[in-house]
Design a protein around this nucleic acid. Structure first.
Lengths: 214, 214
DNA sequence: TTCTCTTGTGTACAAGTGTTCACTAATGTG
DNA sequence: CACATTAGTGAACACTTGTACACAAGAGAA
C-alpha cells in the first residue's frame, strides 16, 4: 500500500459529492456522469465510491438533501432581510439570484434534476419546491398579504411563484457566471413576472372566475 | 455482406432519431445516451450513425428542429379550435396536454433539453419557446385582448405564460401516461395558473407599478 | 495487548465505448 | 448503358466502464 491518505471522517464522501457538483458546474449533465469519472475528479480510487454510495442515483439523492440545506439558508436570509412589504419581490429575487450565483453548481444540479433520469431525485427536488412554496405561503400569511385569498388559492399562488423563479434558473445558469449585464436583465425580468403574478393574486376572486376577463 | 436491408431514403436517419426518442420515452436522459446504444435500439449497425450525424449533439439539434414542427402543428390546432375568448385558456391548455400525451417523448426531450448538456440544444429549445411566445402575443393582439398593455408588456406576459406551461411539462411527464386523474389535476392546476397570470395582466399598469399592491 | 469495524487501496476482468477503415449494394445522373 | 454518389456492413482499434475481491491502515473497544 504505497501511501494512504489520512482523512477526517466523511472527507471522501464530501470529496465525491463535490466532485460531482464540480463536473455539473463545468457543463456536464448529472445523468451522464459515471462512477469512475467522479472518483477521478475527486482524486480517489474508484472502489472508494462504494464505501459511501450504492450508485450514482444514491449520490444524487444525497445531493438533494444538501440542496435542501442550501435552500433553507437562502430562505432564512430572505426572511431576515425582507422587512418592508413594498420591496418584497425585488429583494427576494435579488437574494435568490445572489444565492444562485454563489451556489451555481447546486442550482444547476437542481435544474437538471427536475427532468432528470432518476425518479427519486426528481421527486426529491419537487418535494423541496413544495416545501419552499408552503413556507412562502406561510410568510405571506404572516405578513398579512393577500389576505382575501383562500388557503388553497394562496398555496396555488406560492407554487406559481416558486415555479416561475425555478424556471429562471435555466436562464440564469445558461449565461456565464460573471456577465452582470445579462444576469441583471434576468433578475429584472423575473421580478416583473412575479409582480404580474402578485397583481393577479391581488385581484383574484376565488370562486370560478374567468381568468381571461380582459 | 450477409443481408442488406432495403430502405427508403432517409429511413435510417428517422430510425435513429426515433430510437433516441424511444429511449428518452423509456425514462433515459438524452445526455446519457450513447451512439452505440441508439444504433442498437434502431437495429442499425453503429457505423451507420456517422452517415447521418456527426455526434449525439448533432442528433439532438435535428430533434429540436422536428420539435419545432410538432409545436407549430399544436399552435395551428389551437388557433383553429379556440374561437371564443372566454374559453381561451381552458381550451388551449387542453390542447397542450393532449399534444404532450400524444408526443410524450418529444416533450420529454424538450423538458430535458432546457437544462441539458448541449448548449446548442438548450438554445434551440429556448428559441422555439421565444417564437411560441411571440406568436401567442400576436394572437392576443389579433383577438383584441389585453389591448391596454404595451408591446413589451404583452411580450412579457406571453413569455410568462409559455414558461408556466413549459414547467407543467415536468409535472405531466412525471406521471404515467394513462393516469387520467392525475393528468386532469395537472391540467386544472395549469389552467388556474394561467388564469391568475391573465388577471394580473388585465390589471397591469405599465409604468413602474408596485407588484405587491395587496 | 488483541479483536473488530470502518474505510482506503491495488489488481483484475468482462463488457461496453467512440471511431476508423475498406468493402459493397443500391440509387440517381448523364 | 456507364459512372459517381450515397448509405449500409463487418472487423478492428485503443480506451473506458462498472464492479468484485483480497488486503491493509487506522480507530475504538475489550
Amino acid at each position: 500500500m504505497a501511501e494512504r491518505q489520512r482523512r477526517r471522517p466523511g472527507e471522501t464522501r464530501e470529496k465525491l459529492m463535490n466532485a460531482a457538483l464540480t463536473l455539473v458546474g463545468k457543463g456536464r449533465h448529472f445523468a451522464s456522469l459515471g462512477i469512475r469519472e467522479v472518483t477521478r475528479q475527486a482524486e480517489v480510487v474508484p472502489t472508494s465510491f462504494y464505501r459511501h454510495f450504492r450508485n450514482m442515483d444514491d449520490l444524487g439523492l444525497q445531493l438533494v438533501d444538501e440542496l435542501g440545506l442550501v435552500l433553507r439558508r437562502m430562505m432564512r436570509e430572505a426572511r431576515a432581510n425582507v422587512l418592508q412589504a413594498d420591496k418584497l419581490i425585488e429583494e427576494s429575487v435579488g437574494i435568490f439570484v445572489a444565492h444562485a450565483r454563489a451556489n451555481r453548481s447546486f442550482f444547476l444540479f437542481m435544474a437538471q434534476g427536475l427532468a432528470g433520469e432518476s425518479k427519486a431525485v426528481q421527486e426529491g427536488i419537487r418535494s423541496e419546491m413544495r416545501f419552499f412554496a408552503s413556507e412562502l405561503a406561510n410568510d405571506l400569511r404572516r405578513l398579512r398579504l393577500l389576505t382575501h385569498l383562500s388557503d388553497s388559492d394562496l398555496d396555488m399562488t406560492s407554487e406559481l411563484v416558486v415555479r416561475t423563479v425555478a424556471f429562471s434558473l435555466t436562464d440564469l445558469l445558461g449565461v456565464s457566471g460573471d456577465d452582470d449585464d445579462q444576469i441583471g436583465e434576468i433578475q429584472r425580468r423575473t421580478t416583473r413576472y412575479l409582480q404580474m403574478i402578485f397583481v393577479g393574486a391581488g385581484h383574484w376572486q376565488s370562486d370560478g372566475q374567468r381568468g381571461a376577463g380582459v
